[in-house]
Write a protein that binds this DNA or RNA. Structure first.
Length: 945
DNA sequence: ATTGTCACG
DNA sequence: ACGTACGTGACAATT
C-alpha cells in the first residue's frame, strides 16, 4: 500500500493581492517595493515549516496567473474587464513572486491561456484521482467548488493561511447553503462584480443559494422560472437565463488542463539554504535571514546539507524516505524522448528541472577535446525515460545550407544558464568535467555537480580484472547496473573514414542517442549515489573527489604555454642527431634495417652480430629493452650504446617535441591536458592528450623539453612539490620511530637509511639505500631488489631482513595490510579511499603476489593522492583570500603543483601555497611527520625546479 | 588491437 | 614453468 501523499497547491496570484493590502509599503535596499513579496515570503515560510510534519505536504506547487487573457475572454469579452489595473507599486512585485518561489526551491506553474484556478482544479482532480489528499492554499470562493471527496479518491480541502483556517465540506455548505458541487450554480446566479461575471441582476448570495437549494441546480431553477409566482425575480430569471448559463460557463473551472509538469515532480525535499539566503539578503528581509542562519524553526533547519537527490526514483530523500518506496525503474523507452526545437518547449523542460532540483546533463560536441570541440546539443534527464535532447549545432557549418529547426544557440544558452548555475539544482553528469569545460567556454559556470563516473570510482576502484568488468565508463556502468546496452557512438556516427560529426546526425537518431545518455546517467545516479553512505564512500567522495571536479576543470582550461619555436628547434636537432646515429648503426650492423623494430633489432644484435642476450617472452622474440642494451654496452658493444641514444631521441622527438607542438590549442595558444579523476586505481590523477605528467626531467637532454614550458611575459612558473611524501607517509602509517624522527629532524632520509643499513654513508650506500626505500614502498620481493641492486637474491633477502630490523613497524604494516585486504577485499587510505584487489586470493601465484605488492603500495600512494587533492581543492580559495586570485594553478604531477603568476607575486604566493600543501591532511588526519614542501620559480618549468 | 619500449611520480 | 617493485600514457611496429 502506497503511503499517503498530500499535495499542496498554492494560489500565488490571489495571495499577493491580499498580502499587498495587509502589509505596509516596504521597499528593499534597491528601492523596489516588496511589501506584498514579504507577505508572500512569510506565507511560504510558514508552509515550509510544516514540511517535516507527519501530516504536512509531501508535494507542493505554486500556481500563478500568466497574462490577463484566458480562454474565458473568448467566451465573454467583458470577462474581468472591470478589474482596476493593479496598483503601481504592486506591478514590480509580480515577477518577484516567482523569484521568491524559486528561492524556496519550490515549483512554480503558470500556463498561457489558463487561469491559476483552472490549473489548480486540474492538478487537484488529477492528484485526488490517484488517491492523494489535496490542500488548496487559497480563499478564492470559486475554488470551493473543488472541496470534498469522491469515493475511492483522495480528499480535497482548502487552507487560508491568513486566517489559519481549514475548510471542508460543512464549511462550504455553511457559506453557500449548498454542497461544493452546487457552488458553481450559485455563483452563476449571483455573478461576480470583480471578475465581471454578469449572473442574474438582482440575485445575490442569499437568493442564489435559496434557488439552488429549492430547485436542485441552475437548469432546474431556470426551467421552473415560468411557474414561479410573478415577481421582479421571476422576470429576470426568464429574461437573463442565457446570462446565467454564460456565467455558469465562466465560473466553472476547467478541470482537464494538460498538466505542464507531472505531479510527481512536485515532491518536496529539503530546502537548500543558500539560494533562499541570497534572496532574503537581496530584498532586505533581515529578520527571516537571521532565522535562517540560526536554523531554529527555519524551513531549512532539518536539512542543511545539500538535498542532492532525485525526485521520483529517489536516492533516499533525507526526511521523506519513509513515505515513498523506491519504485522500479521502467524499461528504457526511446519513444519517450523529446527533441526540443522551440523556446517554449525548452522553457518547459527548464521549469521542470528547477522543480525536480536534480537534472542529468550531457553535452554532445563535434569532437572529444573539450577545449576545441563545438557544441552540438545538450540533453537533460529528469527521471527514467524523462529525457530530451536540445539540438543546437546540427546541420553543419554551411551558413546557407538547410538546417533542421533548432532553438538559436544564444537563446538556448541564455535560458539554460540560470538552471545550470543554480545552487538549488544538482547537475548530474557522467564525467561532468567535460561538460563543465564545454559550457564554461560558452560562459556558463555549471554548479553544483555530481558525477556518476566518480561515484562509481569511489565505490568500485580496482574491481576490474584486466580492465574487464569494473570500469567506470557509462556504457560499462549501464550494462553492469542497469542491464542495458546503450546505443554505441560508432553506430550513430560511424567509424573510420565514414565517420560523420555528431552535428550531421539526423535529429531523430541524435535525440535517441543523446537523451539516452542523460537518461542512463540519471538512472545510474539513482542507483549508485545511495550506495556511498552504505559502503563508506561518502567521505572520500564528498570531501576529496567531488570538490576537485571544478578545480581540475579550471586547471584544464587554464592550460600552459609552450614555446613552439623552441620545440621546433629541438625537434630539428634531435632529427639531425638521429639521422647521424642511424647511419652509424646501419654501418655497424652491415645492413639497413628498421631500428625501431624490436624484432629486427633483436635479430641483428643477437643473430647477425652474435651478442649474448637470450630469448625472452612467449613471442619467442629477443628482448631489446634498456636493461639488456645497457648490459651489451657494458660488454663493449658500441651499437647498443648508439641504439640507446637513438631510442632516447626518437622517444623525445615523437612523444614530446613533435606532439606538443600539435597539442597547442589554436584558440588559446596554450596546451590543455585532460586529467582523468578515475585513471589510477590508487586515486591518483592521470593525464592524457597530451600526458603532461611524464615530461622528461631525469636526463639533461630531456630537461630541455621542460624548458619549453614557459610563463607569459611578466610572469613566472612556480613549482611546489612534496618532498619524499610517500616515504613520510610510510613512516607515519607503519609507525617507524627512526624514520619519523629523521623526518622530524629534517635529515637526508636516504643517507639516514644508508647509515642504518650499512653503518656509513657514501654515494654508493646512499644510492642503494634509496633503492631499498623505494622497494619498500612498492612491496618488496627479494628477486626484484636483487635485480635492481645487482646482487644475488639471498643477499637481497638479507638486506630486507636488516631493513625490517632497523625500521620496526614496516614488517608489521605489510603483514597487517595484507591481512585486512585478504579479509575485506580492499585496502584503505588514511582518508578512507578504498581500492579493491579482486585477485588477492588468486590461485596463480604470480597474480596473487602482484596483487599483494599493489595492496601494500596502494594505501601509501593513495593517501599521498588524497593529500594533494585536498590541497588543490583549498588552493584557489586560499589564494583569493590572500588577494592572489590571479595566481593560476596549471598542472599537477602527483606530488607537484605548477602555478603561473606575475613575477612580483612569488614572495606573497609562496607561503600561501606552502602552507596549504603542508597542512592539507589537517584536520582530518594528524600526521606524525611534517609534510615538506619545496618551492622554486623561474621563466620556464625547467627553471622552476 | 596488441606488444614493446620508455617518459614520469 | 613462470617472472618479478607500485602507479600511469604515448608512440611505433606489428598483428
Amino acid at each position: 500500500m502506497e503511503p499517503k501523499q498530500h499535495l499542496y497547491l498554492v494560489d500565488g496570484s490571489a495571495y499577493i493581492f491580499r498580502a499587498y493590502h495587509r502589509l505596509p509599503p516596504l521597499t528593499d535596499p534597491e528601492g523596489t517595493p516588496v511589501g506584498a513579496v514579504y507577505g508572500y515570503t512569510t506565507m511560504l515560510w510558514k508552509l515550509a515549516e510544516d514540511l517535516n510534519k507527519a501530516d504536512g505536504p509531501t508535494h507542493l506547487a505554486v500556481i500563478l496567473d500568466k497574462g490577463a487573457i484566458s480562454f474565458r475572454n473568448a467566451i465573454y469579452e467583458h470577462y474581468k474587464a472591470n478589474r482596476p489595473p493593479p496598483p503601481e507599486d504592486l506591478v514590480p512585485q509580480f515577477p518577484l513572486i516567482r523569484d521568491a518561489t524559486r528561492a524556496f526551491s519550490l515549483p512554480c506553474i503558470e500556463e498561457e491561456g489558463f487561469e491559476a484556478d483552472d490549473l489548480i482544479a486540474s492538478y487537484a482532480r488529477a492528484a485526488a484521482a490517484r488517491g492523494w489528499d489535496v490542500t488548496i492554499v487559497s480563499s478564492d470562493k470559486d475554488l470551493m467548488q473543488l472541496v470534498g471527496q469522491t469515493p475511492g479518491e483522495g480528499e480535497i480541502d482548502m487552507l487560508d493561511t491568513m486566517k489559519n483556517q481549514r475548510l471542508h465540506v460543512p464549511d462550504v455548505i455553511e457559506k453557500f447553503g449548498v454542497p461544493p458541487e452546487k457552488v458553481g450554480d450559485v455563483l452563476a446566479l449571483m455573478g461576480d462584480s470583480v471578475d465581471n461575471v454578469p449572473g442574474v441582476f438582482g440575485v445575490g448570495p442569499k437568493t442564489a443559494s435559496k434557488l439552488i437549494q429549492d430547485y436542485g441546480d441552475l437548469e432546474s431553477a431556470l426551467a421552473a422560472a415560468p411557474e414561479m409566482k410573478k415577481s421582479k425575480l421571476q422576470e429576470r430569471l426568464i429574461e437573463q437565463a442565457d446570462m446565467a448559463r454564460l456565467s455558469k460557463v465562466l465560473v466553472t473551472l476547467k478541470e482537464d488542463c494538460a498538466l505542464p509538469i507531472p505531479i510527481d515532480d512536485f515532491r518536496l525535499g529539503a530546502i537548500p539554504p543558500d539560494p533562499l539566503a541570497a534572496f532574503l539578503a537581496r530584498h532586505g528581509f533581515t529578520s527571516l535571514l537571521k532565522r535562517l542562519d540560526i536554523g531554529a524553526g527555519s524551513p531549512a533547519a532539518a536539512t542543511r546539507l545539500h538535498p542532492a537527490r532525485p525526485v521520483t526514483a529517489g536516492a533516499g530523500p533525507a526526511e521523506g524516505a519513509a513515505r515513498q518506496p523506491l519504485p522500479e525503474m521502467p524499461a528504457l523507452d526511446y519513444e519517450a524522448y523529446e527533441c526540443v526545437q522551440t523556446l517554449d518547449a525548452l522553457d518547459r523542460w527548464i521549469e521542470r528541472a528547477f522543480t525536480a532540483r536534480l537534472v542529468a546533463v550531457d553535452t554532445e560536441t563535434s569532437a572529444l577535446d573539450a577545449m576545441r570541440a563545438d557544441l552540438c546539443g545538450v540533453s537533460l534527464a529528469l527521471g527514467p525515460n524523462q529525457a530530451c535532447y536540445i539540438p543546437l549545432g546540427h546541420g553543419g557549418s554551411d551558413m546557407f545550407a538547410e538546417k533542421p529547426e533548432q532553438v538559436p544557440l544564444a537563446d538556448a544558452l541564455a535560458r539554460l544558464k540560470p538552471l545550470l548555475e543554480s545552487d538549488a539544482v544538482l547537475k548530474v553528469g557522467q564525467n561532468i568535467k567535460y561538460d563543465i569545460n564545454v559550457l564554461a567556454r560558452h560562459g556558463i559556470a555549471v554548479a553544483p555537480v555530481d558525477d556518476t563516473m566518480i561515484v562509481s570510482f569511489c565505490l568500485d576502484a580496482g574491481r576490474s580484472v584486466d580492465g574487464i568488468g569494473g570500469g567506470h565508463g557509462m556504457d560499462e556502468l549501464s550494462e553492469r547496473h542497469l542491464e542495458h546496452k546503450p546505443l554505441a557512438f560508432k553506430d550513430i556516427c560511424g567509424t573510420g573514414k565514414k565517420a560523420i560529426p555528431f552535428g550531421e546526425v539526423p535529429l531523430d537518431r541524435a535525440t535517441r542517442y543523446a537523451a539516452e545518455d542523460a537518461d542512463v546517467t540519471w538512472r545510474l545516479h539513482a542507483l549508485l549515489r545511495p550506495r556511498l553512505p552504505d559502503e563508506g564512500g561518502t567521505r572520500i567522495y564528498e570531501r576529496v573527489d567531488r570538490p576537485l571536479i571544478p578545480v581540475v576543470a579550471r586547471m584544464e582550461r587554464n592550460g600552459i604555454k609552450v614555446d613552439r619555436d623552441r620545440l621546433a628547434h629541438l625537434s630539428g636537432q634531435f632529427a639531425e642527431a638521429m639521422a647521424a646515429l642511424e647511419s652509424e648503426i646501419h654501418a655497424m650492423a652491415g645492413q639497413e634495417f628498421t631500428i625501431g623494430s624490436p624484432k629486427q633489432l633483436g635479430d641483428i644484435l643477437f643473430d647477425k652480430l652474435g651478442y649474448k642476450g637470450g630469448r625472452k617472452g612467449k613471442s619467442g622474440q629477443y628482448s631489446t629493452d634498456q636493461a639488456i642494451l645497457e648490459g651489451l654496452a657494458a660488454q663493449g658493444a658500441e651499437v647498443a650504446t648508439k641504439v640507446l641514444e637513438w631510442r632516447q631521441l626518437t622517444k623525445l622527438r615523437s612523444t614530446y617535441t613533435e606532439a606538443l607542438q600539435a597539442a597547442i590549442n589554436p584558440l588559446t595558444g596554450r596546451v590543455h591536458t585532460s586529467y582523468s579523476l578515475v585513471g589510477a586505481q590508487t586515486g591518483r590523477l592521470s593525464s592524457t592528450d597530451p600526458n603532461l605528467q611524464n615530461i622528461p626531467i631525469r636526463t639533461e637532454i630531456g630537461r630541455q623539453i621542460r624548458d619549453c614550458f614557459v610563463a607569459e611575459p611578466g610572469h613566472v612558473l612556480l613549482s611546489a612539490d612534496y618532498s619524499q611524501i610517500e616515504l613520510r607517509l610510510a613512516a607515519h602509517m607503519a609507525d617507524v620511530p627512526p624514520l619519523k624522527q629523521a623526518f622530524a629532524n629534517g635529515e637526508d632520509i636516504h643517507a639516514r637509511t644508508a647509515m642504518e643499513m650499512f653503518g656509513h654513508v657514501d654515494r654508493d650506500t646512499r644510492g642503494r639505500a634509496k633503492t631499498i626505500n623505494f622497494a619498500i614502498l612498492y612491496g618488496i620481493s627479494r628477486w626484484g631488489l636483487a635485480g635492481r641492486l645487482g646482487v644475488e637474491a639471498d643477499e637481497a633477502q638479507a638486506m630486507i631482513d636488516r631493513y625490517f630490523d632497523r625500521f620496526p613497524g614496516i614488517q608489521r604494516y605489510i603483514v597487517s595490510t595484507l591481512e585486512t585486504v585478504r579479509e575485506r577485499g580492499y585496502s584503505e587510505t588514511l582518508f578512507g579511499r578504498k581500492t579493491w584487489f579482486p585477485r588477492i586470493h588468486s590461485k596463480t601465484q604470480h597474480e596473487r603476489q602482484g596483487s599483494e605488492r599493489a595492496a601494500i603500495n596502494a594505501p601509501i600512494q593513495g593517501t599521498s593522492a588524497d593529500i594533494i587533492k585536498r590541497a588543490m581543492a583549498r588552493m584557489d580559495p586560499a589564494l583569493a583570500e590572500a588577494g592572489l586570485g590571479h595566481v593560476r594553478m596549471l598542472l599537477q604531477v602527483h606530488d607537484e603543483l605548477v602555478f603561473e603568476l606575475p613575477e612580483g607575486d612569488v614572495a606573497a604566493a609562496s607561503p600561501v601555497i606552502e602552507r596549504i600543501m603542508a597542512e592539507a591532511a589537517l584536520p582530518a588526519v594528524r600526521l606524525d611527520v611534517p609534510l615538506g614542501v619545496e618551492i622554486g620559480s623561474g621563466l620556464s618549468w625547467g627553471a622552476a625546479h
